[in-house]
């Protein structure tokens, strides 16, 4: 006879089985892909075109080791992340601010609308030559009069930040704008009849009501700036970052390094997306359930 303390609820057991089955399913497809990849690579036997997963794993297992005299995987990933964080942060602050302003003011929308619609579809990478011409290869510390700081900040070129800013700005701005314009009139009336002035309505009604859309804009902006960054780092004049390392290694036919970079780009991109999704879920749990 099983003592009561050792008994588990049948539905809990069922849930556990489902959860184990789910996590098993999660690994089935990647596992099969890796096995097929390994077999094909061994048969093909041309590692400069098609490396084995084991050789890629070897690169990934030594993230601190210098690769092709271009820094380690970690240092290049950090340089890329720092550029994205700075470019995205500037876009987030300005995008939300101007989105709030334009979304809540009809005449500003009429004034800036056509200009925004012309600039919005422009691919951020198209700004790269302009950014290089204007900012040269000037780095962030140089803006503050420090030629060489000896820190990772020396890897943050202003031109790159400018391009990332353009990449992230429009999704954030347009989503904030749409979010503000879509706020239910009842909430505004309710706040006003409870005595709220314009400032209170903006910060206590418009902002929280539009938060789901703002967070969606931030999520899109972050994903897009990560995309843009990798492409921008492949352009001439860059000496660090995952995009640079990927492009440099491909020129030297080090395909295992190329694929290792691709894996990191995917994992970092998915993690950033996962983090923002988590934030979205936590901060606006009420979204979609308004009554």
């Amino acid at each position: 006879m099983i003592s009561p303390c050792c008994q588990t609820h049948p539905s809990r057991n069922k849930k556990r089985v489902i959860s184990v089955a789910k996590s098993g399913t999660f690994f089935i497809v990647p596992g099969v892909v890796v096995i097929i990849w390994q077999i094909t690579a061994v048969i093909f036997n041309q590692p400069w075109i098609f490396p084995t997963p084991l050789s890629v794993l070897t690169v990934l297992m030594h993230p601190l080791q210098d690769i092709l005299a271009s820094g380690s995987l970690i240092s290049n990933t950090l340089a890329s992340l720092l550029r994205v964080v700075i470019g995205f942060s500037v876009a987030a602050v300005t995008g939300v601010f101007f989105g709030l302003l334009v979304g809540s003011t009809a005449w500003l929308r009429a004034l800036f609308g056509p200009m925004i619609e012309i600039l919005r579809p422009l691919c951020p990478i198209a700004w790269m030559p302009f950014a290089i011409a204007v900012f040269k290869m000037r780095t962030l510390p140089q803006i503050f009069g420090v030629d060489y700081s000896g820190t990772i900040l020396d890897e943050v070129q202003i031109g790159m930040v400018f391009v990332l800013f353009w990449g992230a700005f429009f999704p954030i701005f347009t989503n904030t704008c749409d979010g503000i314009m879509g706020v239910r009139k009842n909430y505004i009336t309710l706040a006003e009849t409870l005595g709220a002035d314009k400032k209170t309505v903006v910060f206590r009604v418009f902002l929280p009501a539009a938060l789901p859309m703002i967070l969606t804009g931030l999520r899109l902006g972050l994903s897009l700036s990560w995309f843009v960054l990798i492409a921008a780092e492949m352009l001439p004049g860059t000496t660090s970052g995952l995009g640079y390392l990927l492009f440099y290694a491909s020129g030297l036919a080090e395909m295992n390094v190329v694929i290792a970079c691709m894996v990191i780009i995917s994992v970092v991109g998915a993690s950033l997306n996962g983090l923002t999704l988590l934030l979205l879920k936590k901060m606006v749990s009420w979204h979609g359930k308004e009554v």
Binding site: N186, A196, R204, A209
Partner: peptide, 28 residues
Amino acid sequence: NNSRLVFQHYTLFPWLNIIKNVEFGLKI
């Protein structure tokens, strides 16, 4: 200015819990 409205729908702020909804006017 001292009148209050009660609607049929969307009558509470969905991002605030009930006590914070009730406190909204007092906070102002």
